[in-house]
Nucleic acid binder design. Structure first.
Lengths: 118, 118
DNA sequence: TATAGTAGTTACCCTAAGGTAAGTGGTTAC
DNA sequence: GTAACCACTTACCTTAGGGTAACTACTATA
């Protein structure tokens, strides 16, 4: 069986979409990225900024974001030890995507609320 | 404790983001929406277009999308019974969002592959 | 010496997401 | 009459995501 161009294009699109979703999916990754758009932060700062996140989830999601090259972990060999997290260029490139997610979410809520009480 | 404007703005943003993620999250919702951007489709057509989706998942996700007013289900009282799914204006308004998800996914893949063999 | 802050880790648990396989009730074509 | 298409539904199972609580190892301060 041969694949035509349309099928191949479609598969590429779905793959790109899955890639994005894999990176942004979950409860905490976008909040972490957004927190870091306000500047580099340390583990404790992130924990205080992102209300309700546990150290386990924060640590786990930071590792995943680092593996995906969205953030960088910098260890300062000071006493006591300090760790700083920051966005990579790839992380910064999520700006437009995050804006669209935000915009559509706002639009969605307006539409739903609007149409609930006509 | 009072909340300042910055905190409130941040909470609104996170809520909007959670709203969007709730709608697009999961393995099948975006593929379904994308399939419907090519035109109205019937259950069986969707099942054939979206490779690997089971009737259970398709039915389940269609219901969720309908509840979120992203798609409409139209029953034609013909023999045999025909059902057609189509995007609502709200569903159509996801275009830019989907484009950004697609764009960033493509960019992400390029960056990752690029940096793997420098 | 006890307390708090640095940055996490580990063990355990529960729920939700998703997959598999089979069945349902109707119609139409062979 | 039986096979196949339409649009699903149901029961069952496995895995992944996420939560809680306690613990680690080190340092600084009262």
């Amino acid at each position: 069986m041969y694949m035509n161009q349309k099928d191949e294009l479609c598969l590429n699109k779905l793959r790109a979409i899955r890639d994005t979703l894999e990176v942004i999916q979950g409860k905490w990754r976008i909040p972490i990225v957004i927190a870091l758009t306000f500047g580099n932060k340390r583990f404790g700062e992130l924990q205080r900024d992102i209300v309700d996140i546990s150290p386990k989830m924060l640590s786990q999601e930071l590792k995943a974001l680092e593996m995906n090259r969205i953030i960088t972990r910098t260890l300062y060999d000071s006493m006591p030890v300090a760790v700083e997290y920051s966005l990579t260029p790839l992380g910064l490139s999520m700006r437009k995507l995050l804006d669209e997610i935000l915009n559509w979410g706002t639009h969605f809520r307006e539409e739903i609320l609007e149409n609930r009480q006509p």
